[in-house]
């Protein structure tokens, strides 16, 4: 089933310049779509379009029945404001439930339950009362993922979630997002310029450079001239090398089914717990080091 269909989508900045031209692609239920492109390729504009924060100047974006753009779980890039913002993890996660409340002013039992479930899923239950600004980069992203999961049951849209994270934490996060896609069946739209991660996780790839350079499955991309050209180009780029830095990194943050079965207290965990305790410990050690 198609969740989102874009036909001849064109968007402009301030009515004059083209930000995006003639995009045709669709997002299927359960899909994992990578949107690749350099800075200025129109990725952010496309995000605004998909969330209906900006109107297309021509063409259409069609949503499946029952999917409203406000039901998309969105993980924006972190902002300057958040660096010194006094907020507890719990406050941040709960704010993901606001789109389910219509005009109700306060959180009910249902929202609190949903918030607690998603804390559990991301393996950050014990961070609940911690201050958001004091967390490590990886922990922050887990919190924001938990918030996004509160906002959606069907589709997550992630905007450069690995920006500013070190390679190990990045790898761990990619695995988590992959697990969200596979275990919870949530559709993922990932906006990134990390070619290697795209080749590893994506089911479909959309490559932008104002117009649509490529749209198709990952294996089609590997076989295409455009794909080959960009892969050889990014091979030389030191920025994206870490994702392919070998098996050593992959195993550190790997989420496995076995490790999710029980946590340190021996209590059997929710079957759909995504995070593993080891990864959280690694995160904690990192925070401790930062504060020492």
């Amino acid at each position: 089933m198609n969740l989102i269909t874009c036909e001849n989508l064109t968007m402009r900045y301030e009515s004059s310049f083209y930000a995006l031209r003639d995009l045709n692609f669709r997002v299927e239920s359960g899909d994992y779509l990578y949107i690749l492109g350099q800075n200025g390729a129109g990725k952010s504009t496309l995000i605004k379009g998909l969330l209906q924060l900006k109107k297309p100047s021509s063409g259409t974006i069609t949503y499946a029945d029952g999917l409203s753009p406000s039901d998309i779980g969105y993980l924006p890039q972190t902002t300057q404001v958040q660096k010194d913002f006094p907020a507890s993890v719990w406050e941040v996660v709960l704010s993901g439930c606001l789109n389910k409340m219509n005009r109700r002013p306060f959180y009910s039992h249902r929202e609190k339950k949903l918030g607690a479930e998603n804390l559990e899923r991301m393996g950050i239950r014990e961070l609940k009362n911690k201050c958001f600004r004091e967390l490590s980069g990886g922990q922050k992203q887990r919190v924001l993922l938990a918030r996004a999961l509160c906002a959606t049951t069907r589709i997550l849209l992630l905007d450069e979630p690995a920006a500013g994270l070190d390679p190990v934490v990045t790898q761990d996060m990619y695995e988590q997002i992959d697990a969200i896609n596979k275990k919870l069946g949530i559709t993922i739209i990932m906006v990134s310029h990390d070619m290697h991660a795209a080749l590893k996780y994506a089911k479909h790839i959309l490559q932008l450079q104002q117009n649509q350079l490529f749209y198709g499955t990952t294996s089609e991309y590997l076989a295409s001239d455009i794909g080959k050209a960009f892969i050889s180009e990014s091979e030389g780029s030191p920025l994206t090398d870490h994702a392919a830095a070998g098996p050593g990194l992959d195993t550190i943050g790997m989420v496995t089914d076995e490790s999710a079965v029980s946590d340190k207290s021996g209590r059997s965990a929710d079957p759909d717990t995504i995070a593993d305790a080891a990864a959280v410990d690694a995160d904690k050690e990192r925070t401790d080091r930062e504060y020492a």
Partner: peptide, 14 residues
């Protein structure tokens, strides 16, 4: 709270 903490997210979720 939501708008102050993260206006993009708040707008996106309606």
């Amino acid at each position: 709270f939501s708008v102050t903490f993260d206006e993009s997210f708040a707008r996106a979720t309606g």
